[in-house]
Nucleic acid binder design. Structure first.
Length: 963
DNA sequence: CAGAGTACGTA
DNA sequence: CGTACGTACTCTGA
């Protein structure tokens, strides 16, 4: 129903769409990564466009629609303003390629689109809006271009996408006045003063909407301000006077032409005849999924005269259906038992499902038979809708501070149960029984978080059937949602925080504040979230199935969650006094360095402010800058400072300053690290409980947050000292550290099948020295340390897509020398070269890369016409399968190690993972056994063509355990 | 007060 | 002009 009924117009609404601006907004609002067909055609813009159009049609029921497009080539504006780019010409190729598809889409929708050489879509819109007004239509202009605001009037409303693309703001004259304090007619004056960054139009520097509006209201119009320019005070006034020419030009450019000859009449632009079969055919071609498609078509379907069935692959489907669950109440154990028997899948059914699922450890044994685990039998995931129940735990999942607030169950029959904390406590026994007996058919969002939450109530959560969060990570590793709600919004392509039961709610700008009490609200959220999990699970399960990633999910990711949850829960013990000592010492050194720096600088510069440092170094001291930052300013990073330091020996004051600054940088950083570690120590147990993020790193690695224990200094002696604060826990004796040597290179050797490299690893000799002797064709004992380190850098650079330029810079040699090294290297290891090239080629063909366990990462950037973008994607495609396979292998090793430790009845446990290193705390008398178990698990996580080498060390702290 | 920019720690 | 991360700090503009 139209919301703009307070007008004298009776016809319409007439919807005018700024095609290009909308496509542009959609393109940048939606990740192109997740919207690309298997043939590499990006579809994010068309999807967003269609989605937005559908939403507006559903909400506004327009009777007439026109879509205006820019045409390629300049306009009269680009002639007036040289830096003005016709927005279309400035668009990225990935967007341009979608414009014809958008027009195809409009054709299938029976929507007319209009373009005119030499003019922009804006002018067409202005002309149509003028015609609509003249002919008595209630008119809506859908545009992300603020220039359209000048068209707003009693009968013309501009629909403007907000920060979130799908949130439309109704820009009526009143709304414009409220936001900008000027009327629509004056808006172009304001825009001319302020400028328009997106169109590359500079305004008056330092003057924003506020000042512009103040002046406009004081003098009535831009012309008025110019006439009284002398009266403007302050810096901003002067800035205005300095830029009058620019502003005048801006005003000419942003005036819209409203009397074009378009050859169409509004009455001919009727909307209503949709070619549904063609829409479906196009959407098939674009590989739009069923949920998203139906959601989108829902809007179009409500149009009268529209016949046909919305179908996907010939199958009748329904729209996203938020069926309200039946919320039951149980007060005691008995009722709970009864409820579970009545509504949850039977124990037998759950166990049958569980029986069909392999145990993690044995399957990994099977997978370990071959590096190419994708060839092992793929376990099939049962259809979730029929046989699964859903569990959602609400509360705080931070390790060491876990708190369970509520548990929500959703049964396959639509019955739901919500238990609050006090209930849970009194029913722990029966709850555990229910969970244990039916875990085989349970679906969760975030297994690891759920383990923590349930543990807070003394409940133990065995491995469920399916984890939506991990599944989503496997399907779209480059996307990371902050929470369940965001994940839902993203996966289902619906606006965030929209009440599912309220239709068309997303177009309201005046949200009514919820006045219900907090508890009730929290309950409603929990209930909604468990529904979200169900909908997401049903959406994502077929995708996992189609990609054959259920094994990866079941035998690697989910068991990894178990291991990580344990590590996080136990934490790593630290010597707090030792930390305090070090912190004080670093603080004193930093202070000392700062005093010297301040003395030499002659002022109290903030040494942590690059901006202030630039002034001191390059202005006051007159040093010659070396490197620029990407922003154009002069870099003050360590590398740049080091160079300055070396070249300023004759300038004592500057030299002293730089030396002190470098020292301050280093010690201050260490001070920060120590401080943050101290703040993270849990006072209850003296341990640091990090959180390992299992769904963040796009390659499949883990990351560590709050605090990050994967970047504790290790390169310099001073920093490495911090590791000595990590000690065994109370009932443990020593720390054991095991790390892989050159895993990534070994993976490359295996996957490339390069005999020379394989032999290099099999030889067991000093690897880099051995490789150097091959590359330089000299005996091993003649390899110089320079040669060894150059070859070492080359080897490591391989997996990063290192350029010869970068190599040269790192080795401090000429690019020519680096080039020679590279060709020598590749002629020695020809298959490695071929393999690396093939990674990129394959990724270009398939659109994604794959690790040895079938973990994918998509690279839409490979098809980009932008060199920087494309080459970055190429390096990513080179690196992802290698880094990712190493991550897979480490995960398998962790699972195996933990399995073996518990099987052997060891008390010892893994406490840290740093990508290629595991740290364990070892109980008395277990050193040899644990060392063997972990080493074995790591060495035999998979069998490659080369051995996996693990080096180990023990000590009374982490530093000593290093080797 | 959030976000961009810069810098820097790890594998 | 080297991949993958997380954190701390400053400065700026809504």
């Amino acid at each position: 129903m139209s919301k703009s009924t307070n007008s004298t117009s009776t016809k319409g609404p007439f919807l005018i769409v700024d095609g290009h601006s909308l496509a542009f907004r959609a393109y940048y609002a939606l990740p192109v990564d997740s919207f690309t067909t298997s043939a590499g055609q990006p579809t994010n813009a068309i999807w967003g466009f269609a989605q937005m159009l559908s939403q507006v049609i559903e909400a506004e029921h327009p009777t007439h629609i026109a879509v205006a497009f820019d045409m390629a080539g300049g306009t009269f504006r680009s002639q007036m303003l040289p830096q003005y780019k016709g927005t279309r010409d400035a668009a990225p190729e990935e967007l341009i390629s979608q414009l014809p598809l958008i027009q195809d889409f409009l054709n299938t929708m029976g929507v007319t689109y209009v373009e005119k050489q030499g003019y922009e879509g804006d002018d067409i819109i202005a002309t149509l809006a003028t015609q609509g007004k003249r002919d008595g239509y209630q008119t809506l202009v859908l545009s992300g271009d603020r220039d359209a605001f000048q068209l707003a009037s009693e009968n013309v409303t501009v629909l403007f996408p907000g920060y979130h693309f799908r949130e439309l703001k109704r820009m009526t004259p009143e709304a414009i006045e409220e936001k900008y304090h000027v009327n629509p007619q004056t808006y172009p004056d304001l825009a001319a003063i302020r400028g328009e960054q997106s169109d590359n139009i500079p305004g008056v520097p330092g003057v924003g909407d506020g000042y512009a509006a103040r002046w406009l209201n004081q003098f009535g119009s831009l012309k008025g301000i110019i006439d009284h320019a002398d009266e403007l005070t302050g810096k901003k006034g002067q800035a205005f006077r300095d830029n009058i020419d620019q502003v005048t030009l801006n005003r000419k450019v942003n005036a819209l032409v409203c009397d074009l000859k378009l050859g169409v009449r509004v009455e001919d632009l009727t909307f209503g005849h949709i070619h549904l079969d063609k829409v479906n055919a196009l959407f098939d071609q674009l590989e739009f999924g069923s949920h998203t498609r139906n959601k989108m078509l829902k809007g179009f379907k409500c149009v009268e005269d529209c016949e046909g069935t919305v179908s996907v692959a010939g199958k009748e489907t329904s729209f996203i259906d938020f069926q309200e669950p039946v919320l039951d109440v149980v007060e005691d154990d008995m009722a709970l038992q009864q409820w579970s028997e009545e509504h949850l899948p039977s124990t037998q059914a759950s166990q049958a499902i569980a029986a069909a699922m392999p145990d993690a450890a044995p399957v990994i044994e099977a997978a370990g038979d071959s590096a190419h685990a994708t060839q092992t039998v793929e376990v099939v995931c049962p259809d979730l809708g029929q046989s699964a129940w859903y569990l959602h735990a609400q509360g705080q999942a931070k390790p060491g501070a876990e708190k369970l607030e509520a548990l929500v169950f959703l049964a396959p029959d639509g019955h739901a149960l919500e238990l609050e904390a006090h209930h849970i406590h009194s029913m722990v026994g029966s709850l555990q029984k229910i969970i244990d007996s039916r875990i085989g058919s349970c679906v969760v969002y975030g297994y690891k978080e759920n383990i923590h939450l349930l543990q807070a109530a003394s409940l133990q959560l065995p491995m469920p059937l399916f984890d939506v969060k991990l599944a989503q990570y496997l399907v779209e590793p480059d996307f990371h949602a902050a929470d369940l709600d965001q994940a839902f919004a993203h996966m289902m392509k619906v606006p965030l925080n929209t009440q599912p039961e309220v239709e068309q709610g997303s177009l309201d700008i005046d949200d009514q504040a919820e006045t219900e009490d907090a508890t009730h609200n929290a309950n409603r959220m929990s209930l909604r979230r468990v529904q979200y999990i169900k909908l997401m699970a049903e959406h994502i399960q077929p995708l996992i199935e189609r990609r054959q990633q259920f094994n990866l999910l079941r035998i690697i990711e989910m068991p990894t969650s178990t291991v990580l949850a344990g590590m996080e829960h136990e934490g790593a013990k630290v010597d707090i006094h030792r930390l305090k000592e070090m912190g004080d010492q670093f603080a004193a050194e930093a202070q000392d360095a700062q005093n010297i720096a301040w003395d030499r600088a002659g002022s109290q510069v903030n040494l942590q402010s690059p901006k202030q440092l630039q002034k001191v170094l390059f202005e006051d001291m007159g040093l010659k800058p070396t490197k620029r930052t990407k922003n154009g300013s002069y870099s003050t990073n360590a590398a740049a400072l080091q160079k300055l330091y070396v070249t300023s020996v004759d300038n004592e004051r500057a030299n002293d300053f730089l030396g002190a600054l470098l020292r301050h940088r280093e010690t201050n950083k260490l001070k920060q690290i120590v401080n943050s570690l101290m703040e993270s120590v849990n006072p209850k147990d003296g341990c640091i409980h990090t959180t390992y993020e299992q769904t963040v790193a796009a390659t499949g690695r883990l990351s560590s947050v709050d605090p990050n224990l994967q970047n504790i200094p290790n390169k310099n002696a001073a920093g490495r000292e911090i590791r000595s604060a990590f000690i065994p826990g109370e009932n443990f004796e020593t720390l054991l550290s095991c790390d892989y040597s050159q895993v990534e290179l070994r993976i490359m050797a295996d996957l490339s099948g390069d005999e020379s490299l394989i032999d290099a690893f099999k030889s067991g000799a000093d690897f880099h020295k051995y490789v150097a002797s091959l590359v330089y064709q000299i005996p091993m004992d003649e390899v110089t340390s320079d040669q060894r380190s150059h070859v070492k850098a080359m080897s490591y650079g391989l997996a990063y897509g290192l350029s010869t330029y970068g190599l040269a810079q790192q080795l401090n040699v000429s690019p020519a020398e680096a080039d020679v090294l590279r060709s020598q290297y590749f002629s020695t290891f020809g298959k490695v070269h071929e393999y690396l090239e093939s990674l990129v080629v394959d990724a270009r063909v398939k659109g994604y890369t794959e690790t040895i366990f079938g973990r994918r990462r998509y690279f839409p950037g490979l098809a980009s016409t932008n060199r920087v973008t494309r080459e970055a994607a190429e390096r990513g495609a080179l690196n992802a399968p290698i880094q990712g396979s190493a991550a897979d292998i480490m995960k398998v090793a962790m699972i195996k190690a933990q399995h073996a430790l518990s099987k052997a009845g060891c008390q010892s446990r893994i406490i840290l993972q740093i990508h290629d290193e595991l740290v364990a705390e070892v109980a008395a008398g277990e050193v040899d056994m644990v060392s063997n178990i972990i080493t074995d698990a790591m060495e035999h996580a998979v069998e490659l063509a080369v051995p996996l080498d693990v080096s180990t060390g023990i000590g009374s702290d982490w530093q000593q355990a290093a080797h």
